[in-house]
Design a protein around this nucleic acid. Structure first.
Lengths: 118, 118
DNA sequence: ATTACATATGAGCAATTATTCATGCGTTGT
DNA sequence: ACAACGCATGAATAATTGCTCATATGTAAT
């Protein structure tokens, strides 16, 4: 960013700025929050969440339900695994995925509530 | 997508598939949900939300608080305006931005709750 | 053993994204 | 009238993303 030009009379409202600064503790929280919401910020992943919140499902069934290639689903599942929001269990060739817990589902439910309040 | 090869014995579990399909009404909800969460899936925008949920703030102060160029902030504000989640009011040269309502803040609060439960 | 199947993964690609830079627009003060 | 300031915006760019394609891995069946 460019400190030279922008807002030379920087801090137009120093009092407001300072009040806000004092209230904004936890300097890294916005990064964690963005990370969480970013997980949910994709239609395919939301669909996966919606499906898994109904039932444990295998990769092939997920692909069929979402109408995407198995590869695409597998890539998204890897993403969700690395984000620690899904569990999986192997049964022979088949791998069943499930939500790790109800927390993420609750966040989505709040999104639904948001839509309905609109 | 490729219908030729993947999962020739498609629908490994037809009963599960059908049960899920019957429960997944509202075929476009996942798109709307992804859109909402996508708005929150960026650190800069989350910061803007955090600040605006404390107080109405002008563009220049936002830039100073977030430590980004005025231009970058303006672009993000345009995004948020088009997403109908912020209001703004002009006072001479200065433009003050505010949250349109509390709904989005509540969604973020749920994200915070998620983090704390971790 | 060989073949078929379910899933995982790396490479490649097109589309999207967040920022910077340059500039334009409207308002204020001189 | 003119300069300075706050903000908006278009173009350009680098980084990220979500998918496809090809292929690898492990399991099951013949």
């Amino acid at each position: 960013m460019n400190d030279n030009y922008i807002c030379e009379t920087n801090y137009i409202h120093k009092d407001v700025i300072n009040e806000i600064k004092s209230k904004l503790t936890e300097p890294k929280q916005h990064l964690q929050l963005a990370e969480i919401f970013n997980i949910l910020g994709d239609p395919t992943r939301i669909k996966i969440f919606q499906i898994l919140s109904i039932s444990e499902v295998c990769v092939c069934d997920l692909a069929a339900l979402i109408n995407l290639s198995q590869s695409a689903i597998s890539h998204q599942l890897r993403f969700l695994r690395q984000a620690n929001v899904v569990n999986y269990r192997k049964e022979g060739k088949i791998v069943y995925y499930a939500l790790r817990d109800e927390k993420m589902k609750k966040v989505i439910d709040y999104g639904v509530k948001y839509l309905n309040e609109k």
